[in-house]
Simulated assay, not measured.
Amino acid sequence: MIRVLVFGQSGQLARCLAQEATCFANIELNFVGRSRCDLEYPWNIAEIIDKMRPDIVINAAAYTAVDLAESEPDRAVAVNATAVKVMSELTAKHAIPFIHFSTDYVFDGSAVKPYVETDRVAPLGIYGQTKLAGEQAVRDLNPRHVIFRTSWLYSPFGKNFVKTMCRLLAETDEVKVVDDQIGCPTSAYDLAHGVLQVLPAFVTERSPAFGTYHVVSDQPLSWCAFTRRIQVLGADVFGPEWPGGDRRITPISTDQFPSKVKRPAYSVLSNRKVREALGVNFPSMTESLGRVLTDLNKVTATRKRIF
């Protein structure tokens, strides 16, 4: 049995890890949420690691409010950089492998082809800068590390684009969506399953697989194109009582959608390395998005409304 300590409990990724773990009988996940360890004040990380002495540590927690980070840089630094540095130091001290998650926002979006793991990083805002600082701490302090960069996560849990669009499509006649930012919408279910699938490889003493990987879906889309996919599949999943299937979706430019921080116009990540080195392959977007919408429908149905 592989004993895993997971920092994070209520976020999208942590909740999907918990759900997908039922498929892996040889992996035991132990979650630590904010009530036990607030990563803005990471004074008891050492106590938690010392007490459990896990086989591997996963950091599934992060400060992800991209716009808010511009006015709360201290909070973003504390969670995305300082706490990660502490985890890296302590896992290295005990010779424990460390898995950390990062983001497409470490790039500036100026590329014209999918980013590979060795491409130049140049984050545009505080969020991306703090995530990059976390990456650097992991690499500098624990040689037995894995950094999984992902993008545009969605799931039935927490706040995310899919849930927001389902609500807006149900509530408004017209939904205006940015059409000039391109990325890889990725199901947190798929990410969690892929990580758990390869996790045993990182527990070995001399694993050759340590390093940085891009783990995203295979289909780049704009936010607007993704919304159209949500609408089509949503109509099938939610049924004729869902009004969102008939709403108008209007493409707009980034300039028409005010934001405190500039976002990468092109943040497509190549997942070739993780496929070839670790054998991680994701389902089609139709399957992945369909599963999330189906589970979302189950949750909302218990509340007697779609959203």
Rank of each mutant, 00 (worst) to 15 (best):
V4T: 15
A14C: 09
F24H: 11
N26H: 14
I27W: 02
I27Y: 06
R34L: 08
C37Q: 09
Y41P: 02
Y41Q: 11
P42K: 01
W43E: 12
M52Y: 06
R53W: 03
I56H: 04
I58L: 15
A62S: 15
A62W: 01
A62R: 00
T64N: 08
V66L: 10
A69V: 05
R75D: 02
V79N: 00
V79L: 04
V84L: 08
K85F: 03
V86M: 07
P97A: 13
F98W: 04
F98A: 05
H100P: 02
H100C: 06
S110C: 13
A111F: 12
A111W: 07
V112N: 14
P114C: 08
V116R: 14
E117W: 05
P123C: 03
G125F: 00
I126M: 12
Q129A: 06
T130N: 01
V138L: 03
V138T: 03
D140K: 13
H145I: 05
V146Q: 02
I147S: 02
S151C: 11
Y154W: 08
S155Y: 05
G158R: 07
K163H: 09
C166A: 15
L169S: 03
A170V: 06
E171F: 12
D173P: 10
E174L: 11
V177F: 01
V177Y: 00
A188L: 04
A192D: 01
G194Q: 03
L199K: 05
P200C: 09
V203N: 08
T204H: 14
T204G: 07
G211N: 05
V215S: 07
V216Q: 04
S217K: 02
D218F: 05
D218A: 15
S222V: 09
C224G: 06
A225M: 05
A225D: 14
R229Y: 12
Q231W: 05
V232Y: 09
G239L: 09
P240L: 08
P243L: 10
P243I: 10
G244H: 04
G245W: 06
D246F: 12
I249K: 06
T250H: 02
S253K: 15
T254S: 15
T254G: 02
D255Y: 12
F257Y: 10
F257I: 02
S259K: 13
K260F: 12
V261E: 08
S267D: 04
V268Q: 00
R272T: 14
R275P: 01
A277E: 15
A277P: 02
A277W: 07
V280G: 03
F282M: 15
F282P: 04
P283F: 06
L289R: 03
L293K: 07
T294F: 12
D295H: 12
D295V: 10
D295E: 15
V299E: 13
V299C: 07
T300M: 14
R303D: 09
K304W: 11
K304A: 14
